[in-house]
């Protein structure tokens, strides 16, 4: 089970072991990690699961789809070069140790 570290806007971090195939968004919302909403239930349609991926990990993630790219234009907090939608990232073994930063706001 890959371990994912979620760091909130205040710098507080939570470590979770996610089942492979679970998304980073689902890991957060099902385990009470604040800072990720997931309003559209993971259909890449709301941008309330916006996160920043630690640079070291960014290149290891599968590429963004066109829909994710477009939806990232709609984030409530600033979009940065390491912005991703966490519902589009599924936990895999190669991702063990990934660090995710949450933005200031999602809505």
């Amino acid at each position: 089970m890959p371990t994912v570290t979620y760091v909130d806007f205040q710098g507080q971090s939570t470590e979770l072991d996610l089942a492979e195939g679970m998304t980073i968004m689902q890991g957060a919302v099902m385990n009470g990690v604040e800072g990720i909403e997931g309003e559209c239930s993971g259909s890449c349609a709301c941008a309330t699961c916006h996160c920043y991926v630690d640079d070291a990990w960014l290149a290891k993630l599968p590429e963004m789809s066109e829909n994710e790219e477009e939806m990232l234009e709609d984030t409530a907090s600033e979009r940065k070069t390491n912005s991703r939608l966490s519902c589009q990232i599924k936990a895999t073994a190669t991702m063990n140790g990934i660090v995710i930063h949450m933005p200031e706001e999602q809505e």
Binding site: Q26, V29, M30, E39, C40, S41, G42, S43, A45, C46
Partner: peptide, 18 residues
């Protein structure tokens, strides 16, 4: 209850949630 499946989930989750 974040993460409920009232609108389904994943690629086919409801288009009309908003």
């Amino acid at each position: 209850p974040k993460g409920h499946l009232g609108f389904g989930g994943g690629v086919h989750a409801c288009l009309g949630t908003s």
